[in-house]
Simulated scan of single mutants.
Amino acid sequence: MSDHVSRGPTRRSIVGAAAGGFAALLASGRPSRAAPPTGRTTDTVRLSWLNTLLSGIAKERGDLEKRLLASDGLKVEWVGPFPNHAPSIQAVAGGSADFSFGGSTAVGFAAILGGSPLVFALFGDSLPRSTAIIVRPDSPIRSVKDLVGKSIAANRSGLGEYVLVAALEQHGIARDQVDIVYLNPPDAGPAFASGKVDAWSIWSPVVDIARESYKARDVFTEKDLNHQLDYSSFLVPRAFAEKNPDIIRAVAKAYRDEAAWVNANNREVEYLLQSRVNYSDAIRDKYIQEKREFVIYDVNDRAHLARLQASADWFTAHRVLPDKLTVTDHLAKI
């Protein structure tokens, strides 16, 4: 005869069973996180590039394309070089490139608001910030307040315009108190040198070359700003992103790996860039000392997306952009 005594359900067991059942019910009703999309329709990706940015370094070194071929079976075709981000984005929108080269995000915002069916595939930043408003050595302009009534060259909806507008705001000057002349760098340089414009808002290395070649003086530098609102971005056609999420992920990883190598090999990178852009040893050594670096942000980085939304809102409020834009409506889904 067994000495085991069978007992009925206790209060504790009933409560435990009920709790377990309730938890199971909650779990069954909880929406599961969707798996990331997969797939691709091509074995070739066309990357645009600019000499002095991460894309240009990657093209010159050749490691990025080797990694993509070895790990993902992707062949890279380089498209460019481009003088600034706007024509790179136009190439993507027009179908002659798949990725823009990682330039000013403000230009990307403007293109999307202008109707281009593009999304952001990757974000970045380059440090230290180096854009400046410069004048010729004989200019009577000594401060931002002296820019009132003067003509200043800048690229439309890009880093040059952003720094100029932010500098004016910081010194209590309305943008309609100056004459903003929209020129891309290849046209702005001669206009500045010949005196057709009074000042120029421009980034490195062009600004350093102008300081050296024209003895240009700084009126304001990006380091004087009390906030940063423009970052780097790589844009792709929306249809391309929807059909090729595997390529978006692969290229993002390749650029992330490239940035890590660049940041660890500053001296070698600066010699490489000098050979491409042909600036002086003094400028090269300045960059080596500054230890320039590239930072990469994924399109799902919530903290960075919040910064980008603040950026878009600021650009709209200050008429750099014509309308409001919600950044999260224009991201590649990966």
Rank of each mutant, 00 (worst) to 15 (best):
A153T: 02
P37N: 01
L308Y: 07
A303V: 05
S157N: 08
G115D: 02
L229F: 09
Y287P: 03
K286T: 11
V79F: 10
R175Y: 10
L74Q: 04
W314Q: 04
P31M: 01
D281K: 09
Y162E: 07
F22K: 00
L321N: 05
S88N: 06
A250H: 06
V165N: 04
L127D: 09
E258A: 15
R12C: 13
R46V: 13
V76E: 04
K145R: 13
A312L: 01
G114W: 01
N300K: 03
I288G: 09
S139D: 04
R67V: 11
V197H: 06
I202H: 03
D63M: 10
L122Q: 03
D301A: 10
W203T: 10
V92W: 02
G158C: 06
W314A: 11
R292K: 11
P31E: 01
Q309N: 09
K145G: 15
F234S: 06
P137I: 00
A91Q: 01
S104E: 06
W261Y: 15
P137M: 03
A193R: 02
S48A: 14
V178G: 08
E242F: 11
T10N: 09
A210Q: 03
Q90P: 10
K223H: 12
G108W: 01
T38E: 13
T42M: 09
R292A: 12
G29Q: 04
E161P: 15
A91K: 00
A306E: 11
A317H: 01
F294T: 02
A70L: 08
L74T: 03
F109Y: 14
A154T: 02
I202A: 07
A58N: 07
A306G: 14
V327R: 01
L168D: 03
R11F: 15
T38W: 09
K223N: 14
G56S: 10
F22S: 13
F315T: 01
D230T: 05
I283S: 11
L113G: 08
Q177Y: 11
H227D: 12
S213C: 05
P117I: 00
T52I: 07
L68E: 02
G39D: 04
W200L: 13
G29K: 00
S233W: 00
V144P: 06
R11V: 13
D176I: 05
R30W: 15
A27M: 07
K291S: 15
G95K: 00
P31I: 00
Y271A: 14
A306Y: 08
R256E: 15
D298I: 01
N184M: 08
G103V: 00
F220L: 05
L164H: 07
R175D: 12
L235E: 04
D198C: 10
A282H: 08
I180Y: 08
L50C: 13
R7T: 12
V320Y: 08
S233L: 02
I14E: 06
D323C: 10
D138W: 09
G158I: 00
E77R: 10
